[in-house]
Simulated assay, not measured.
Amino acid sequence: MALFSRNPEQPGALRDCTPGAKGMKKFSEGDVAVIDAANISRHEAQTLVDLKPSAVINVAEFSTGSIPNYGPHMLLDADITLLEGVGQSFVSEFKEGKRARIGEDGTVFSGDKALGTGRMVTRERAEKNFASAQGALIDHMESFFGNSIDFINSEGPLLIDGLGVPASGSEIAGRKVVLFSPTDKHREQLKQLRNFIREYEPLLIAVGAAADSLLAQGYKPDFIIGDPNSVSDEALRCGARVIVPADPEGEVEGLDRIQDLGIGAMTFPAATHSGTDLGLLFADYHGADLIVQAGGGVDLDDIFEDRTNPSAVLSRLKAGTKVVDADAVINLYSAPSSNLGWLWALLGILVAIAVVILIVGFGGNQDFASNLSETWSSLFGGA
């Protein structure tokens, strides 16, 4: 693979192409794309290929070995130099637009300053990672579905007939429910769901620490599900009904906390302690009309990359079409941006002027034109 030239006249400006950065807009053919994309997909790779970079520097690994992804092959087919694993510190070290070169050992230089070091990705390495990932994915999926069968075997009565679901929740029937899980994005999603909440007044189910997020934004949860040790005293005492996960033998984490606070709580015995999974089963069992899940969902990539478990998948399958991701609802309630605001303002001014003219023209004792002339003369005649 060709390395960057030491000649400063050669192209090779570093461009930050990580999510939210502005490097994509400034990108010119031959620049160097800096990304943070583990297991880069074909779509992501094609976006880079279209930019025609001389090299792509990845903070993460182009392929971690967890899934067989074609992204690295597409970039190599386009004769693009690939450097991976430079680490998060590299993002803060380089300056947007500065020219760079890559040494034979994978060190990135800007002038004489070393910004970081990574690994060169060759065709041989990409093929080896792909083959290894194929085998690992098959092994992982066999294990995942084996665990799914075990979960169904132990929790079939819960999944089929709702055995063990707390009985207190009859008011959920026919209502819309928003289930908040305490992930990185749930607070922002809560703000963006305010119009939906105002219009439909759904019941609010908070999982663990999400109860405190609801209180902080002026909402009171109707139900709190999860380990009480992750919830503040204020939230536990806010009037919400508290549901505490219990293992199949009946042991409950956080029971001492509930007793010390002197509040009532219901137990939910199951083979999973995930408040989100239990919340979905709880809302579905009691007949929720719609369940909006805020704080992250589950997709096939999560299964492939071992970011979820069988209970998460099966609980969502049980709730079926009732479950809607919060981002979908937010998208429906987001008005498209418009650049025509100035036109509406101008139209409003013109309408106001026309109204004034009509009032003046028809408001006098003379004909329309004479009334306008007399009013104009009285206002500006002495100017």
Score class of each variant (00 low, 15 high):
residue 139 D to R: 15
residue 138 I to N: 03
residue 140 H to K: 09
residue 173 A to D: 14
residue 177 V to A: 02
residue 150 D to A: 13
residue 140 H to Q: 09
residue 175 R to L: 06
residue 167 A to D: 12
residue 157 P to T: 05
residue 161 D to E: 13
residue 174 G to V: 12
residue 160 I to N: 10
residue 161 D to F: 10
residue 159 L to K: 06
residue 160 I to L: 15
residue 167 A to H: 11
residue 177 V to H: 01
residue 152 I to M: 12
residue 145 F to I: 12
residue 186 H to E: 11
residue 181 S to W: 02
residue 154 S to E: 11
residue 169 G to I: 08
residue 138 I to E: 09
residue 143 S to Y: 07
residue 152 I to K: 01
residue 165 V to G: 05
residue 172 I to H: 00
residue 137 L to H: 06
residue 167 A to G: 11
residue 150 D to I: 07
residue 172 I to A: 02
residue 144 F to H: 03
residue 184 D to P: 02
residue 145 F to N: 07
residue 177 V to E: 01
residue 185 K to E: 10
residue 154 S to D: 09
residue 163 L to A: 15
residue 148 S to C: 13
residue 151 F to M: 04
residue 139 D to L: 15
residue 150 D to T: 09
residue 153 N to E: 13
residue 145 F to T: 08
residue 159 L to C: 09
residue 171 E to F: 13
residue 156 G to T: 05
residue 167 A to L: 14
residue 180 F to L: 03
residue 161 D to S: 13
residue 152 I to P: 00
residue 137 L to F: 05
residue 151 F to Q: 01
residue 143 S to R: 15
residue 187 R to A: 13
residue 162 G to W: 06
residue 153 N to S: 14
residue 178 V to N: 00
residue 181 S to T: 10
residue 188 E to I: 02
residue 185 K to M: 06
residue 144 F to S: 03
residue 156 G to K: 13
residue 179 L to Q: 01
residue 188 E to G: 07
residue 172 I to R: 00
residue 168 S to W: 06
